[in-house]
Design a protein around this nucleic acid. Structure first.
Lengths: 229, 229
DNA sequence: CAGATTAATCTACGATGTAGAATTTGTCAA
DNA sequence: TTGACAAATTCTACATCGTAGATTAATCTG
């Protein structure tokens, strides 16, 4: 039985922007960005590839629709104003963690001024300002935090996704850890790296991200003290 | 006159891994990653697409070859050991700045443990250790710096490349600036963002990156003082 | 000089993104 | 009721992409 041609009858399940994006997000989460093609997405929707183009103008629109969709998961948890900036920062990080296959697009959109960046920044600025920082310091701290956040998210997200953007053997089976990576090279290479890493207690630090935040926090406090006086 | 078939005669310019990668880097720098296809690369080389496969096993190998090539530009400037960690950090940033179209791949490789990360980390560790930091602090500071660096590089690189990875109208003509971006929305949205940004002197801070480094530096000093005592 | 090796070209294929025409259904004024 | 129009889908088609496999010619090795 071939598909019927023409406009669908009122009864049958209609194609919506929301439905398309929901399926697309699921596909990317489960199979990676590389698996998302218009043809495959259409198949998953039980529809012709070109049907999608009546709801979204092209593939890149699907991509940014996905990003928008995922960023919207972030909006609700702004429970109260003064939960503190660390809460805001952590919420964004958790979001990216939840969708490792999307890291690149999320971070890219964040960095290139997508609509979602405004909401995140608004809340971050609010939190920082209510912590008593001067306006100039608010801006500088926010920039620092967002950049750091994106860097961490990228590193974590990439190590989290099993098969990367290029699903060949190149990025597969990478150790993702400095000390493991070191073992591939002759032992007279990178001496300082070796010495420092070997000298450390075997338990890897519980959470590099939290330590990074601590250091940044200390820096912000120190600097705003300097600026104020 | 059709191309001759078979192995090329000794006289004529031969295809090399180096020549391929050099042209590829040039293409990406000038026209963006999206413009780099095996067919086009071959045309630029005056050669059949499949000829490339005798020197590089596939496109992803070309990509990582490009990244490797570009990272190698970084090696020489390690003039002396104690130029300080800020010099190391800035060198990496300048490298990425010089190849904005490659940001994503450079940062990705950096973040996912590519071969280049080792050299960069070695020198960074050396600089931090010679600044008198304890081993544990060296590792944490290095992680923080690398993550921040990648975040900044990504943000800057993306804003620097005119036509992005998706050369449609979506990412084209984006303001790339918070205050410009704000003007698109009704003026009762994002009040705090508006207030803080408007309150700032009109001259945008000379270099957010340098301020970020200052803040991080202050944090590192503060923290290493805490740990030491 | 006779293989064997090497490095290129030629041909071909499946996938991808999407333009444009054809087709059917719903809506709404006459 | 009818007839024109709009909307939503399928159908057909195409250029481009990455690359597998066969073919061909120049060079190297014995």
């Amino acid at each position: 039985m071939a598909k019927k041609l023409g406009r669908p009858s009122a009864g049958q399940a209609q194609l919506t922007r929301e439905r398309i994006l929901a399926i697309a997000v699921r596909m990317v989460d489960e199979q990676g960005i590389a698996a998302l093609s218009m043809h495959r997405l259409a198949t998953e929707l039980g529809v012709d590839p070109m049907a999608i183009y009546h709801h979204l103008p092209g593939k890149s629109a699907v991509l940014s629709g996905i990003v928008e969709q995922v960023f919207n998961e972030l909006r609700p948890p702004a429970i109260s104003a003064d939960a503190g900036w660390q809460t805001e920062v952590r919420a964004y990080r958790d979001l990216v963690r939840a969708h490792p296959n999307l890291v690149l697009h999320l971070v890219t959109d964040m960095a290139s001024g997508g609509p979602a960046i405004l909401a995140v920044n608004e809340r971050l600025y609010a939190a920082l300002a209510s912590a008593g920082l001067a306006d100039r310091m608010v801006v500088q701290s926010a920039n620092l935090l967002v950049d750091y956040l994106n860097g961490v998210a990228l590193a974590e997200g990439l190590s989290r996704q099993y098969s990367g953007q290029y699903p060949d053997q190149h990025h597969a089976g990478e150790p993702q850890d400095l000390s493991q990576l070191l073992q591939r090279y002759p032992s007279d290479h990178f001496p300082i790296l070796r010495r420092v890493l070997d000298a450390l207690p075997t338990d890897t630090s519980p959470d590099d991200f939290e330590r990074g935040l601590d250091i940044i926090l200390a820096g912000i406090q120190q600097w705003s003290r300097l600026v104020h006086i």
